[in-house]
Write a protein that binds this DNA or RNA. Structure first.
Length: 473
RNA sequence: GGCGCGGUAGCCAAGUGGUAAGGCCGAGCUCUGCAAAAGCUCUAUGCGCCGGUUCAAUUCCGGCCCGCGCCUCCA
């Protein structure tokens, strides 16, 4: 079953290229534009990364784990990272390290597989300079008076194909009309040209490298082109990112790479749509910008966040709300309960997949339709749930279930909530359990009220109890 | 102004030219000292509004209203 994926360039559903199984050198090359490491990523960023992670998992299942090479960059030098370092009086590398580590921790919590390679912009200055050099020699770039190098948009006939903008003219009423134009407007031959190399400015501090055009630093777009060429080749199978990267970032990458290499840059372009929170674009001023930590602090599990991010079709804006997080948490509980039942029934038995959940995979193959996949998942668990299922069938269903849960990246083995239980609460719970065993129900009920008032929920079972924190909203 | 997307039950959200998946919430039930958990059942004669095409439209076409995104460094 081929993976069909919307392609931003042709604006149509296209199958992904299948690498030759007989040729060990033929890998599916997959590049995902990564984060700028200057602050914690927010859940909007993570929508893109989680969607890309499902895609990565699906490709692995489809072509085999060894048949895909997944690269995601880290932008560790740009205006924002430099500004942050300057404000904090720290070296750029220290800022980048801090937020790279945080990004990795968040990705791990969200159960995203690590890319096979995470190259950095500062680690590829040489490659970027080399590429700019070729563009200069071919006449696609020019050096301005201040030592910056710009790409000459008019030298590339196909410019604008991806974002469908033939020429970026500043329209009356456009977002730019009122503002002063870019700071480097005077240096550029044309307003649409963009920087390949930025001449050193005092604000850049020590963050500058030597180049044939003087000291400076690379422009934003060139890093991806250079790292892709080095690590994945001149033509890659799949290039992805958030919808905002369509223009100018990816448009510019195409221009640079195709002018430099003379071949098609990417066979397939995939952009996931943005996340809205409570129906609006996230912004600090609206107070609806969440990081993973913000949501964990509210009592939600990272896995519920992942589930919530998969509740909408990646090609459609998703309205993220705290209510959907509650829904996600509950849905996960039911899936966990379903799996526990299968595990119990299966005992030590193992079996080949029953293919019970194949329609979940089918939904994912159809343009990564995650909401449809989740719908099928629940439908299948409901229809086939049975306490009296034969062990051999339970084992087969379990294999099938775990396969699709791998594809979705939903890890049910981690507890829903991990919170430290205060000793005082444990003490109350112990007392109540003792009272209950002694059939002193009046005392037991009073203690339950105390525990609830303290923000905890005590769940009785036949052989004991568990404590869960009440949700905060 | 340019390019694009969407309006489906209280909330989130799939989907189809032939009469509306799924999740959450809610209600009822089973179980249970209590409370939960878990399980079962139920919950849109309706898919923004108005026309058109059609035997048949939520699904196609046109118009309108509303919301949203991008437009030089925001995933």
């Amino acid at each position: 079953m081929a993976i069909q994926l919307f392609d931003s360039l042709s604006r149509s559903l296209q199958p992904l290229r299948t690498p030759d199984p007989a040729d060990p050198q033929d890998l599916f090359t997959f590049y995902n534009c990564g984060p700028t490491v200057y602050a914690p990523a927010h859940i909007g960023n993570f929508r893109t990364f989680v969607v890309n992670d499902v895609l990565r998992r699906l490709i692995e299942l489809e072509f085999g784990p060894g048949k895909v090479k997944h690269v995601r960059n880290l932008t560790d030098v740009d205006d924002k990272t430099i500004r942050r370092a300057r404000e904090e009086g720290r070296p750029l590398a220290a800022v980048a390290k801090q937020w790279t580590d945080k990004f990795h921790a968040d990705c791990d919590a969200l159960n995203c597989l690590r890319p096979h390679l995470e190259p950095t912009a500062t680690g590829h200055i040489r490659e970027q300079v080399d590429m700019i050099d070729v563009l200069m020699q071919k006449g696609n770039a020019y050096r301005a008076a201040d030592g910056s190098v710009y790409f000459k948009v008019s030298s590339f006939d196909n410019y604008g194909r991806l974002s469908r903008v033939k020429e970026r003219e500043l329209q009356p009423g456009s977002a730019l009309a009122g503002k002063s134009q870019a700071a480097d407007a005077d240096e550029k031959e044309d307003a649409t040209d963009f920087a390949l190399w930025k001449a050193h400015k005092p604000d850049d501090g020590e963050n500058a490298w030597d180049s044939p055009w003087g000291r400076g630093r690379p422009g934003w777009h060139i890093e991806c082109s250079a790292m892709i060429k080095k690590h994945l080749g001149e033509t890659i199978d799949l290039h992805t990112g958030g919808e905002d990267l369509l223009f100018p970032h990816h448009e510019n990458e195409i221009a640079q790479s195709e002018c430099c290499n003379g071949v098609t840059f990417a066979r397939h372009w995939y952009h996931s749509k943005h996340l809205l929170v409570d129906g609006a674009k996230m912004s600090k001023s609206l107070g609806n910008l969440y990081t993973l930590d913000d949501l964990v602090a509210k009592g939600f599990s990272p896995m519920a966040v992942r589930y919530a991010l998969l509740m909408g079709h990646p090609q459609k804006q998703l309205n993220f709300t705290l209510d959907s997080l509650h829904a996600a948490e509950s849905a996960l509980k039911h899936l966990r309960s379903y799996r526990d039942t299968l595990v119990q029934r299966a005992g030590n038995m193992t079996a080949k997949s029953s293919r019970l959940f194949d329609d979940v995979l089918a939904a994912l193959h159809d343009d990564l339709n995650t909401p449809w996949a989740l719908g099928e998942l629940h439908e299948d668990t409901r229809v086939h749930k049975s306490d009296s299922i034969a062990p051999i069938h339970a084992a087969a269903d379990l294999t099938s279930f775990d396969l699709v849960m791998f594809a979705l990246g939903l890890d049910l083995r981690t507890p829903a909530l991990k919170a430290d239980i205060p000793p005082a609460i444990t003490a109350l719970a112990e007392k109540r359990w003792a009272a209950k065993q002694a059939k002193d129900f009046a005392t037991a009920d009073a203690l339950r009220k105390e525990i609830t008032a303290a923000g905890w929920s005590m769940l009785d079972r036949k052989d004991g109890y568990s404590l869960e924190p009440l949700k905060k909203t």
